[in-house]
Lab assay of single mutants.
Amino acid sequence: KVKIAGPGLGSGVRARVLQSFTVDSSKAGLAPLEVRVLGPRGLVEPVNVVDNGDGTHTVTYTPSQEGPYMVSVKYADEEIPRSPFKVKVL
């Protein structure tokens, strides 16, 4: 029921550039959304989540370095389908 889309989860994500993606939970009811961005060697990146007021949230983060990242998206305390997402930061 929760959908996710945006360039911040795709290929070609650049280090030190603001990345974003949208989480659409409009068909999933009200529940807490939790997003974690883990970088190389367990680095935890700050994440900004904005409630758009229409059942969607815009998530932004800036990867601080190149390497493999994991983006975990939980809704109602459960990983959404395909989460955690593997993101290769260049």
Rank of each mutant, 00 (worst) to 15 (best):
G39M: 01
G55V: 02
V2K: 02
K1S: 06
S83C: 06
S20M: 11
D77M: 08
V35R: 00
R41L: 13
D51A: 11
D24W: 05
D24N: 05
L38P: 01
R41Q: 13
K1P: 04
V59S: 01
D54G: 09
P68F: 15
V17S: 09
S83W: 00
H57A: 08
P40A: 05
V13S: 03
P40M: 05
T58M: 10
V2Y: 03
V59L: 02
L90Y: 07
P63E: 01
G6K: 03
L33M: 07
V73I: 12
F85H: 06
S11L: 10
P40I: 01
V73H: 00
I4N: 02
D77F: 08
V13K: 01
E78Q: 12
I4Y: 04
G67Q: 01
N48Q: 10
A15H: 09
P84K: 01
G10R: 07
Y75W: 12
N48P: 02
G67D: 00
N52T: 05
H57C: 07
R82Q: 15
D51N: 13
Y75G: 00
M70Y: 12
G55F: 11
T58E: 10
F85N: 02
G42D: 13
R16D: 11
T56R: 11
D77W: 06
D51S: 13
N48E: 13
D24Y: 06
E66D: 14
A28W: 00
G29R: 08
V2H: 04
V71A: 03
G53L: 13
S72P: 01
T58F: 14
L30F: 14
D24S: 04
K3Q: 09
G55Y: 08
E78G: 04
V89L: 02
Q65C: 09
F85K: 04
V71F: 03
E66T: 11
R14H: 13
P84T: 03
K86F: 15
V37T: 02
N52L: 08
M70W: 14
R36I: 11
G67H: 01
R14Q: 13
V47C: 13
N52G: 07
E79W: 06
M70C: 12
K88Y: 15
P81K: 06
A76M: 10
S25K: 11
S72Q: 08
G55H: 14
K3G: 06
E45L: 09
A31G: 15
Y61D: 00
E45F: 04
K74V: 05
P63V: 01
L9W: 04
E78D: 07
V89Q: 01
R36M: 10
L38A: 12
D54A: 08
T60W: 10
Y61Q: 00
H57Y: 15
T60D: 06
E78V: 14
V23T: 00
L18V: 12
P46W: 07
I4M: 09
M70D: 10
A15S: 09
G67S: 01
M70P: 00
A28G: 05
E78K: 12
P32L: 03
A76D: 11
V47K: 02
L38S: 13
Y69N: 01
D77K: 08
V59Y: 07
V71G: 00
S25I: 15
T22A: 05
L33K: 04
R82S: 15
V71R: 00
T56E: 06
V13L: 06
P46L: 07
V13H: 03
K1I: 06
V44A: 14
V87F: 14
A15R: 06
V73Y: 00
V73T: 01
L90E: 13
V71T: 00
D54L: 06
E45S: 06
G42V: 02
P63M: 01
E34W: 08
S26W: 02
A31V: 03
S11R: 09
V2L: 05
V37M: 06
N48M: 13
V37S: 02
V59M: 05
Y61C: 02
V47A: 11
G12H: 09
P46K: 11
V47R: 04
V44S: 14
K86A: 14
Q65D: 07
E66G: 10
Y69G: 00
A15P: 10
D54Y: 08
S64H: 08
A76F: 06
S11A: 10
V23Y: 00
I4F: 07
A31I: 04
P7T: 12
A28L: 04
G12W: 10
P63H: 03
R16H: 13
V87G: 02
R82T: 11
G8Y: 01
R16M: 14
S20W: 13
G55S: 10
V23Q: 00
G55R: 12
A15I: 06
S25H: 14
F21K: 01
A28C: 07
E34P: 00
P32C: 09
L18Y: 05
S20N: 13
S72K: 08
V59D: 02
I80W: 01
P32F: 06
L90M: 13
V47N: 10
E79M: 08
G55W: 08
K88G: 11
V71S: 00
D54P: 04
V37N: 00
E34K: 14
G10P: 05
V47L: 06
S83L: 01
P32D: 12
D51L: 10
P7L: 08
G67I: 00
L90V: 12
V50C: 11
P81A: 08
A15K: 06
V17P: 02
P84M: 02
T62N: 06
A28S: 09
L43C: 14
L38K: 13
K3N: 13
V87A: 03
R14I: 15
V47Q: 04
D54H: 11
R82P: 09
D77N: 12
K3R: 09
V47Y: 06
A28I: 04
V37P: 01
V47S: 13
V59C: 13
L43A: 12
H57Q: 09
P63K: 00
H57R: 10
G8A: 03
P7F: 08
V2I: 13
S26L: 06
N48G: 12
K3L: 09
I80L: 09
K1G: 05
D77P: 00
Y75E: 00
L33P: 11
R16L: 11
L38G: 09
A31D: 14
V87W: 02
L33E: 03
G67C: 01
F21R: 00
G29V: 08
G6M: 05
R82I: 06
G53Q: 12
G42E: 10
D24K: 03
A28P: 05
K3P: 02
K86L: 13
S83H: 01
K1F: 07
K88N: 15
V71Y: 02
G29P: 13
G6H: 05
I80F: 03
E78M: 11
H57F: 11
D24A: 02
G8P: 03
T22R: 07
Y75M: 06
H57P: 01
V23K: 01
G8W: 03
Q65L: 11
V23S: 01
P81M: 05
P46Q: 10
E79H: 12
I80P: 02
A76N: 13
P7G: 07
P81V: 04
R14K: 15
G8S: 03
I4G: 04
D51E: 12
V23D: 00
L90H: 15
S83K: 01
T56I: 14
V87H: 02
S25E: 03
D54V: 05
D51R: 10
F21V: 02
G42W: 05
S25G: 07
V49W: 06
T62I: 08
S83I: 02
V17F: 07
V73C: 06
S64E: 10
D51C: 12
T22C: 09
G53C: 13
S11K: 11
I4S: 05
G8T: 03
P7I: 07
V71P: 00
K27N: 14
V59F: 06
E79S: 07
I80A: 06
